[in-house]
Design a protein around this nucleic acid. Structure first.
Lengths: 208, 208
DNA sequence: TGTACATCAGTGAACGCGCGTTCACTGATGTAC
DNA sequence: TGTACATCAGTGAACGCGCGTTCACTGATGTAC
């Protein structure tokens, strides 16, 4: 009898076996991520996330100091996904080629399109960008761009010249990402081919 | 006696003469703008604005349907200021010169720096960018850029070529504005000279 | 010019609600013997 | 292997709070006579 009850409970709640959750932290972070995506970073509420994760509203406080720390965890994981996507995108292209740089830019934009909520969380104003883990992860992503640009201009290492050229390329791609997810291009009736746009203008920005 | 009372009251409340406000709508919009600037568009609350404007929380509902309409009014006025700043910036330069285009871009960025809250309100995702008044004002601002770019490439009118070149320039400047107000450039320890950055990269984006 | 009255901008109090966080408690788990 | 116990992840109820909006009301203003 008791075994049958247990079994039913297990099936009903899927991840939940009993009083203990198993991995409540991961569950809450995933619920937070989904809500940030659904409602935006500012509409997210702790209560919502707990409801979605199927735990009491007090539970997250065993794992996070406060609401902000939950968002920080989501931003952090986002930074890693973002970095990994860029690293993967360049892998299929000749280092230092315009193709590689285009793939890098497109993967930045595609991340923004795929996860606009998390993208906003990562790149919007907050105290988050001052946390060392976030800065480090950002530096790592920027490093991928720096290396490609150094290779593009046929330099062995990242020098001042590569750094000066990298920032405008980041700026352009960053602007395009926001214009797309904030629906400004479409509101202004501007048709866009992201790939050609990124390729041509990266080329122009790196000219001289 | 009564006159003295009136006088004292007038001095104390400045804008407030008695039961009626005079221009409550403008007062509330200004309070809303200031709060959007101070706390950000998402932290703004109707109650805060009423407190700041010195009116009851019910008062704005004589002039606005709801909270969103108050933000819409602030966005709208922001669009006009933004447009006027760009129009003024180009006035001192030869039409179609790189100087004129640089001044245009810088005025875009300076608006973002001066009013980051309103800038976010104007360019963030919402249903607002679909309101005809907002779209129209946006088109007008974009038209200034289009005209300068047509003149830059020595064309008499705005043709497809000008439109194709304008979008990347907007994208670049827009991206720079966000990287600056979201403090990404400073968080990554990147030093910037906005004027040179805008001039050089506008030139590159318009090359070919 | 003086009075009666309609208008409607602004009030003050209340509404129902969801929020972030805290608290004393519960009970599943792992470990020592 | 079996039992006693410490640990601590998760609970459920409550807290104080500020929110957006509505309501019946008040009183200043402008107009008709």
């Amino acid at each position: 009898l008791e075994i049958t009850e247990r079994h039913a409970q297990k099936n009903a709640l899927a991840k939940r076996v009993g009083y203990h959750h198993g991995d409540l932290r991961a569950g809450v972070v995933e619920a937070t991520r989904a809500l940030v995506e659904e409602k935006g970073p500012d509409r997210f509420s702790v209560s919502d996330a707990c409801r979605a994760a199927g735990v009491s509203t007090a539970a997250p406080y065993r794992h996070f100091h406060d609401r902000e720390e939950m968002l920080l965890a989501v931003a952090q994981e986002g930074m890693v996904r973002h970095h990994d996507a860029m690293a993967a995108a360049q892998r299929h292209h000749t280092p230092g080629s315009l193709d590689a740089l285009t793939a890098l830019g497109l993967s930045y934009i595609n991340f923004a399109k795929a996860e606009p909520g998390v993208f906003r969380l990562m790149f919007g104003l907050s105290q988050r960008e001052k946390k060392p883990q976030i800065v480090e992860q950002g530096m790592a992503s920027y490093g991928i761009l720096l290396a490609q640009i150094a290779a593009y201009s046929e330099r062995a290492e990242v020098d001042d010249c590569a750094m000066e050229h990298a920032f405008p390329v980041w700026t352009f791609v960053h602007g395009l990402a926001f214009l797309l997810i904030d629906e400004k291009a479409s509101a202004m009736n501007i048709q866009i081919d992201p790939e050609e746009l990124v390729r041509e203008n990266t080329r122009r920005l790196l000219s001289d």
